[in-house]
Design a protein around this nucleic acid. Sequence first.
DNA 1: GCGGGGTTTCGACGTTCATCGAAGCATAAC
DNA 2: GTTATGCTTCGATGAACGTCGAAACCCCGC
Lengths: 136, 136
Amino acid sequence: MTTTTMAAPKGLPLTVLSACCQPASAPSAPRADESAQTLAALFKALADPARVTIMAMLLNAEEVCACDISEGIGKSAATASHHLKILKDSGLVASEKRGTWVYYRAVPERVAAIADALASPQRTPRPKSRKERSES
Amino acid sequence: MTTTTMAAPKGLPLTVLSACCQPASAPSAPRADESAQTLAALFKALADPARVTIMAMLLNAEEVCACDISEGIGKSAATASHHLKILKDSGLVASEKRGTWVYYRAVPERVAAIADALASPQRTPRPKSRKERSES
DNA sequence: GCGGGGTTTCGACGTTCATCGAAGCATAAC
DNA sequence: GTTATGCTTCGATGAACGTCGAAACCCCGC
């Protein structure tokens, strides 16, 4: 169930894909911008090979110990912790501390949310370009 | 020509989601890393609100004039061109010059490729963590 | 040819990012 | 309490990024 897609038909950043370039009820309220920023933040969280590798590990295995992640990406423990914090802050992974070890798990709903935002072009009739506007 | 995705059923970076943490036939050849880098590069191309907005415009309308994109993201023409170049280099958009104007179009296959990479967890039995290895 | 407008490239600036070593925290075993 | 181990935070450094103005490029109409 992909988070989303339940109360609101497509209630997440996806809206940016259709809410762009609209009347904008409130004059100075950048609404679509907000969604774009939210979505861009999610992409930024994945915009590093180390973090992609981490997500791959977490999506393949149900749970991964932090110690394995460090050697899985071939970087120092400090760097691994840094990347994990970024993924955690973006909600893409969750962590649980059991004794000395910390286990990380992917949050599939969040991952699916990104995939959903990328799907379904849903073309609109056609905005009419500036060129056309100036030609008429 | 979209480069990619056509002959192979899922012939793209998705492999990173299953190719990670494997025997690695060649000792010092980071193979999964390559896929991770490819995928991360795609995410990085989308890791900016301006570029997300551009993709939204291009996915909604079939074709958008460059001049509209500049004002669509509220940045200078130079900045818009910079972002468009990044998207073009990553294969997410294509451009066509007709007379004085340049029209940009999204490359749906490439966008879908990212969505595909995010889908299908395909769990493997379980890698066995370092903790377990050290405990046995 | 010349002038003008759309687009891209160049150069520069300030900001953000990835990375590591070292130090700090927390938990478990003794 | 002390020691050892796993993880995170801190501080610093070099690289990459986003942004813009100015210059260059390209195509059209005259």
